[in-house]
Design a protein around this nucleic acid. Sequence first.
DNA 1: GACATTCACTACCGTAGGGTTATATAACCA
DNA 2: TGGTTATATAACCCTACGGTAGTGAATGTC
Lengths: 118, 118
Amino acid sequence: MTAAERLDATFFALADPTRRAILARLATGEASVTELASPFEMSQPAISKHLKILERAGLVSVGHDAQRRPRRLEPGPLQAATEWIGRHREIWESNFQRLDGLLEDLQAPRSVRKKKNL
Amino acid sequence: MTAAERLDATFFALADPTRRAILARLATGEASVTELASPFEMSQPAISKHLKILERAGLVSVGHDAQRRPRRLEPGPLQAATEWIGRHREIWESNFQRLDGLLEDLQAPRSVRKKKNL
DNA sequence: GACATTCACTACCGTAGGGTTATATAACCA
DNA sequence: TGGTTATATAACCCTACGGTAGTGAATGTC
């Protein structure tokens, strides 16, 4: 899987409140599928599907204990995600003063901007 | 829009390489739709759709200049996203030593764990 | 006025997400 | 062996995404 695909999977996995709640729950310790499903008004297969998406992103790994399949957190992919955001946020915010300075001019029609040599 | 919905929209917007490339391109300065579309082997309406998703997340705002609709970056939503990740990453990583310590026991069958009072 | 450019908007299509119920599998227990 | 528990899987539905092509409005230019 390429780095871009990993980012895709990670951000996508985070883009759902149920999945974020599952991650928050797992932060307090490993849990089985039924344990994870019980707080939600949602069927067990639905939770299993969400877990598949979290596993695809590498955010969750599966254990093996008799019939139970306890899920654990894997924080690794989050680092890549925060790094991507952080890297770009620096650039953006450093550009923002300049952009904000241009704003009034951009509101003006193009003809005005031409005279201003923008 | 609730905070959860804003997070949904932000993470979802970031979960696509085309949209991340658009954001990276906008980091170098505002750009029109056709300018944004040209590097991609993709039609202009497709780019417009991606922009709609970025706007829904509040990551991009639209200007108005004659026929042009220049897009600018709005880094605000990223802060909420990084804060969510950061907040949880702290908890997770602080729990990790404890979880790792339990791991060997969890690998063992339940009967063994019972004897160990786990 | 006539034309070109920029862009949005509307259908339309195929695929995948997010949910359901029902069923199969696997492991434990009696 | 039979029964229960935990989980996965399949089949199905509805909706939204991600792309296409086509159309039309707004604006600037000749």
